[in-house]
Structures are given as structure tokens and as C-alpha cells.
Design a protein around this nucleic acid. Structure first.
Lengths: 233, 233
DNA sequence: ATGCAATTGTGACCAAAATTACATATTTTG
DNA sequence: CAAAATATGTAATTTTGGTCACAATTGCAT
């Protein structure tokens, strides 16, 4: 179930390790570690739900989560998968809106909650940090725009190939090219924006074409260049 | 061609009128007006092009532009339409990436160019302004995520209805309910993410169903509630 | 271990929307 | 103003991908 055999205890977490906080001074890191609350979450638990008010944002210390929106008749659209070092819930928090996505644990996770006031304090007092925040938002905005274009213009096959490559670049792949993150076909479909059956069919096709190998939910990459060409990127 | 009979001369522009700059002090507004360069752009001209390096961002003083990405074999995906008071090109500028979109004038426009250094100076020295910038980015990010869900889950008919309502809310509508912005069928298609022929067909259908009235490129709203229900929002 | 629930896989069928191919308007430009 | 270019409209056809139905398998909880 858990992807690594060692899960750090919440108390030991030191947020200074994470890139997101790289511009903070020692004093600020001290305040951050003092204000934070860390907690473990079991697979399947929901960290926050669309439509609720957030009291802070979270830094992922360990594990994997999916961030998704609930669309027409409950069908979920996965916006992104997050892992160690990623931060979540900051978008709705900073615009002081209700959460526009939900976050569900896919692989047992440890998250640190940082209160809104602490974030505001850091943004206000450390220009480098707030500039870094702006750059992260800008990058995410570009990715979102890219994805809009993809979903509007590419076929399901192209998008599935692209999502597989995206997972390969962002999550652990072991020595023989096997993707460590394990998603259901439905989750893949909800990321690609298609029906579960289509994903099943296309994965079989990719397997037939010797692009990937399938062992249950584990996907092993056999021919990345062709996959890349197929994704038209 | 031009939507209003009076086009302000670039020199007269005072940026303090625009909401985006509402948190700046008088001194800062002074610096801004001093650093800016305003220019008129004719319909069809391209303000900046995808892949180029930006030297600053623009504030739209007048006119209408489309912001779009060029996807597979040159098909453009329109990300948004902008008008008076909107700012453009700040995303790529702030993340210091090459422009990921292009901006083309749809209705003769006047734009003010504000250099990168000026923006950085203002962000760094005025917390309220930089917080406002963060909030704008967050809002755009939410809109992008919403649109991803829409495009992935809704039918073309639903999306077209939604785009029409979005245009109605963001652009001038005259007394008898006629949308003043005039777009080609192809531009509508590139916003909705579909083929031009599909837009033509669906617009005729909407007209048959007495939801809208068509006079060339002018669209007049007859039954907004039904349209809203059709868009499933 | 056993049984229920969820997931995966497959095939047939259907609906939505893209593509193709033209005909007709309408803009734009020389 | 006329010619050329661009945009609009329509119909026929094809493709893609969604839906439905059902079987087989796997996972999970008691």
C-alpha cells in the first residue's frame, strides 16, 4: 500500500527541507515549524472538500494525493497529482474563495497544515518568498492553459500518452522503467478526461504496440520515444 | 469597425483609472505613468507572439483582443478575450518564461506597455499591490481549472451556450440584448474548442429554438434562462 | 477463508462531432 | 468598383469515443 517503507513521524518534520520555503530566513522557518500542524492521512481520506472554507494550506511531506473537481453528475476531473514537497490548497486560500477542488489521499500521506495568517505574514514580510509564490502561480497558470489546449484539440489517445509521460516525469520510476505510482483505470480516465473503458482499451493497444507493459496497475515503459511522438509534444 | 466612436489618444491615458492599479500610491502612479508607453493597434495586429521574450506587460486602455495558444497544425485555442482595464502578458513575464500565448487585436485598441522593472519595483515595494496581483493570479487559475473540467466533461452545445453567456457578462450588451462584441464563427469555435461548422450548426439551432437572434455576426439574446440551463451552470 | 464490492476487461451499439465537399455571402483590397 | 479572399451555411459521410451490458478478476472486510 505505502510506496516507501519508512513514513516519517509528523513531529520530526522540518519544513526547511522543501523547495517551496527556500527563501525563508532561519527565524521565519522557526515560526513556520512552530505554527504548523502535521498529521498522517490514510489512503482514501479526504483532506479538504470542494465548497468548504480553508483555514490554511498544506505541504505534502509524504505520500500522494489527487486534486480534483467534481463536474457533471459527480464525475471527477483530476487537475493534478501531488507528492512530497508539493503544496496544496493555496489557490483558494489566497483568493479567499471556497475551495474549488477536493484533495484525496491515493498513497498514505503526511501533511503539514500552515495557517492562513502565517502564510500572509511570510508573504508580506519576505519579498523573495512572495515573488517565489507569484512565480509558482504563474507556472501553474501556464500548465493549466497548456492543458486546456490539449484537451480541446488532442484525441484521447494523444492525451493518454501525454498523461503517462507526465506521470513518468513527476513520479518515481524504478530501474526497469516501472512507474511506481499506482492508479486505477478510472483515475487515469478522470485525468485524461475520458471514459474508463476508453483508457482500458487504449492501454491494451499501447501494450500490443509494445509501448508499455502492464502488470495489474503497474505500468512499465518500453518505448518512450514513440510514446512521446504519439502525444505530439 | 471600431466599437466606440471615440478613441482616446495614447498620451492622455492615466492609468490610475484602472482597478488593477487601485492599491498604488500617488507617487507610484506617477512613476507608472512616466514609465509607460502607450500605442494604438489596428484590428488584426499582433501585440506579442507565442515564443517571444516579453519586456513588460500591457494594460488595455481601449479595444478588444484575443489571447490564444497555437495548438496542433496551427489551430488556435482562444484562452480569453480582453477589454478595457484588463492586463495581459503578465503571466509569462512574471515567471520569466517565453510568451506561451499570442495576443491579436479584434477591435482597434490602445495599449499601455509597462516595463518589467517597473512591475517588479511596484510588487516589491507595495505589499497591497503584490497581494492584489497574487489574488488576480489565483482567480485566473480557478477559472482555468473550471474550464478544464468544462471542456473535458461538457458537450459542445453546453460549452457554446456557456461561452455566449460569458461574453454577455463580460462585454457590452446594448438595450435590446445585442452583444456588441463581434466575433467570427471560427473565433467562437476556437474559444469553445470545436469545429467552425459545429458552431454554425448550433447557432442556427439556438436561433430555431428562439434562444438567440442572428444578424450577421451580431448575436441578440432572447432567452437567457433557457440558455443558462442548457449550459448546465 | 469466504463472500461481497469494486475494478478490469470485452464486445456491440450508438451518438456526437469532425471532416469533406460545395454553394453562397460577405468583406477586404487593389 | 470589381476581383479576390475570407467567411458562412448546408448536407453527406466517417470517425471517435461514449454508453450499455455483462463476464472475469481482484481486492477488501468480516
Amino acid at each position: 500500500m505505502r510506496s516507501s517503507s519508512y513514513i516519517p513521524q509528523p513531529e520530526e518534520t522540518n519544513l526547511s527541507e522543501f523547495k517551496f520555503f527556500k527563501h525563508l530566513t532561519d527565524t521565519e522557518i522557526g515560526k513556520l515549524n512552530y505554527d504548523k500542524t502535521c498529521q498522517t492521512y490514510k489512503k482514501g481520506s479526504v483532506v479538504y472538500r470542494e465548497g468548504t472554507r480553508l483555514t490554511g494550506f498544506y505541504c505534502v511531506t509524504n505520500g500522494i494525493l489527487k486534486i480534483y473537481k467534481t463536474g457533471i453528475d459527480g464525475k471527477e476531473q483530476i487537475i493534478r497529482f501531488v507528492k512530497q514537497g508539493d503544496i496544496i490548497a493555496f489557490r483558494s486560500l489566497l483568493s479567499q474563495e471556497l475551495a474549488c477542488t477536493s484533495a484525496k489521499v491515493i498513497d498514505d500521506a503526511v501533511l503539514c497544515h500552515i495557517p492562513y495568517q502565517t502564510l500572509l505574514y511570510l508573504l508580506q514580510n519576505n519579498w523573495k518568498f512572495s515573488h517565489w509564490m507569484i512565480q509558482i502561480l504563474c507556472r501553474e497558470l501556464r500548465e493549466a492553459n497548456d492543458y486546456i489546449t490539449d484537451i480541446a484539440q488532442k484525441t484521447v489517445r494523444e492525451r493518454l500518452a501525454e498523461v503517462l509521460l507526465l506521470l513518468k516525469d513527476n513520479f518515481d520510476v524504478d530501474d526497469d522503467g516501472t512507474l511506481q505510482i499506482s492508479l486505477t483505470r478510472e483515475e487515469l480516465a478522470n485525468m485524461v478526461g475520458t471514459a474508463t473503458e476508453s483508457v482500458i482499451r487504449l492501454l491494451s493497444e499501447f501494450k500490443q504496440d509494445k509501448l508499455i507493459e502492464l502488470k495489474g496497475r503497474k505500468i512499465r515503459f518500453l518505448d518512450v520515444p514513440t510514446l512521446r511522438r504519439m502525444a505530439s509534444i
